[in-house]
Design a protein around this nucleic acid. Structure first.
Lengths: 152, 152
DNA sequence: TCTATATAGATGCAATTGCATTAACTCTGG
DNA sequence: CCAGAGTTAATGCAATTGCATCTATATAGA
């Protein structure tokens, strides 16, 4: 656990597992969405954040903070979402540079349909593989790898 | 732990942590490599596999199995690696379609230099955050999420 | 107020990825 | 031996990502 230039075998193994498993899970979920004729995971992430905050919406830079997507990525993703009528861009009164992004009814509907597929993937790939205690253990351990570390 | 269409809150949280943490770690490692003027992680994955098997080399389809990259992705990645002189493509005697990919001396050197940066990231981001027992716990839990599940 | 600096978001262009297809070869059954 | 099916790898083209830069507005300081 001490800082080293060369990681311990245990650290390497944990890292390798994390890389491989996350890639596999993402690929599976992405594939399930595609099979359902639904948009990719990235769209879900944004729609989810927007659905959670409701009518107030979010500024693009807030979405960047929450989703970890790059600025140019969000900019273009929002353009696509808007083109599909899933979100709307509103000017913001006290800052002429900015805009507020709000999810539309169609956006909520799409998010719901995505969740029915995405949620099933989560249930199958994670929920069905570990007990509740084990899931909590995973969350806690991964929480310590997060930046900033999670307390729980 | 029973199969459900809607995942438990614990499963959702574990999934969310996994997605976020893996993204963050990859981003950090990728950034460190870039700052060192080194190629991206994907190159390391391939060079690592090739370095491990030695002079015998690997067929592209074997790299696909090991790295989980898509076929077209490997095909083009190998073209770039070859263009940089990091690997060489050899015809394979008993299968006229195929080729064997072998890492070159320059490839080994690049891999080593990448590891000096990549390894440090692993040590800092994972090794320094959890005890050996915790690292083993992470590996074991994630191993059960893998497909096929790992035994250890 | 005016200038310099910082922040919000968009965009041109190059590199990469994803999708579908293709080319070349191998294998199997008749 | 041959036709058909399968496997291995490459590639044309569209979509996305990454990088650097740009525009517009806001804010701080002289």
């Amino acid at each position: 656990m001490t800082e080293q230039a060369t990681p311990s075998p245990e650290a390497i193994k944990a890292w390798a597992r994390l890389m491989r498993v996350s890639r596999q899970l993402i690929e599976h979920a992405e594939e399930a969405l595609k099979e359902g004729g639904l948009p990719p995971l990235a769209w879900y992430d944004v729609l989810h954040e927007l659905a959670e905050v409701g009518e107030g919406g979010l500024r693009p830079f807030q979405l960047i903070e929450r989703t970890l997507f790059a600025q140019y990525n969000i900019s273009r993703l929002l353009a696509r979402l808007e083109a599909d009528g899933l979100v709307e861009k509103l000017p913001v009164a006290d800052d002429g540079r900015g805009q507020t992004i709000r999810i539309t009814a169609k956006g909520r509907d799409t998010r719901r349909r995505m969740w029915s597929v995405y949620g099933r993937s989560i249930a199958e790939l994670v929920g069905a593989k570990l007990s509740v205690d084990q899931l909590n253990m995973v969350s806690a351990l991964l929480g310590r790898l997060r930046h900033p570390p999670a307390s729980d």
